[in-house]
Simulated scan of single mutants.
Amino acid sequence: MFSNRQITFTRKAGRVFTLLGWLSLIMTALIGVAVAIPMMAEGAGRVGSSEITLLVSITGVLFLLSVLYLWVGSALKKHRQWARNAGALLAFLSLVNVPIGTLIAFAVLYYLHKGWNEAPLLT
């Protein structure tokens, strides 16, 4: 039923990044819809193209960031060295997202630090 295989610190960091990616993707969709619906309800004549461009730009950047979290998280689970570097950079940048992003970033940095030199477990 349960295997006695330990989860490495790098895989833990990958799981945290994957979770962060999915949460970020869901929040991006919710924020985009929450802003787009009132804009459409006001009518096309009252909403300028600059507001629409701003909404699409911000939503696009947040979507790309979510996909980046998912991609790095998947690569961390496979113990890719480039993903460790990218994960450390993303976690460092997430430190400014007080308070939740800071806590998650500290957890990821801790896991990456502890597992920096570990080899992947053979399955």
Rank of each mutant, 00 (worst) to 15 (best):
L109N: 09
Q6H: 05
N4G: 06
H79P: 00
L103T: 02
G45A: 12
S57M: 12
Y69E: 11
W71M: 04
L19E: 01
A91I: 00
A34Q: 12
L89Q: 07
S50L: 13
S24C: 07
L122Q: 12
I104V: 08
E118A: 08
K78R: 15
G60S: 13
G14H: 03
F9H: 15
W82Y: 05
S49H: 12
L62A: 12
F17G: 01
K77R: 07
I52L: 14
N4Q: 03
I104T: 12
G115L: 09
G48H: 13
A44L: 13
V56T: 14
A75R: 15
S24P: 00
N4V: 00
L64N: 02
V56G: 08
S50W: 15
K78C: 04
A107I: 05
V96Y: 14
L122E: 12
T59H: 07
V16I: 13
L112Q: 15
W116M: 03
Y111M: 07
L55E: 09
L89D: 01
F106A: 09
A107F: 11
T8E: 05
W116Y: 10
V35L: 15
L55G: 10
T28Q: 09
L62H: 09
Q81H: 09
R84F: 02
K77E: 07
L23N: 12
S49P: 10
T59Y: 09
E118K: 08
A107Q: 04
L55H: 14
S57Q: 03
L112R: 14
S66Y: 05
G32W: 03
W116D: 03
G101Y: 08
L70S: 04
F106P: 00
G32M: 07
T10R: 07
K12W: 06
R11N: 09
G14R: 04
T10I: 10
T53D: 11
L54Y: 08
L109S: 09
F17A: 05
G21R: 08
L76I: 01
A107V: 11
L95Y: 11
A91N: 01
G60L: 04
A41F: 09
V16N: 06
Y111G: 00
Y111E: 08
L109Q: 11
F17Y: 06
L90E: 04
A91C: 00
F17S: 02
Y111L: 03
V16R: 09
M40T: 12
L76S: 05
A75N: 07
L70C: 02
I100V: 15
I52Y: 11
L55W: 15
R80L: 01
A41P: 01
A34Y: 15
L112D: 13
M27V: 10
M39E: 12
L65W: 06
L121W: 04
V72Y: 02
M40H: 14
R5N: 03
L54P: 00
P99D: 03
L76P: 03
P99A: 07
V96P: 01
R15C: 02
I58D: 03
Q81T: 08
I104F: 13
V47T: 15
T59D: 09
R15L: 05
F2M: 10
A75W: 10
E51M: 10
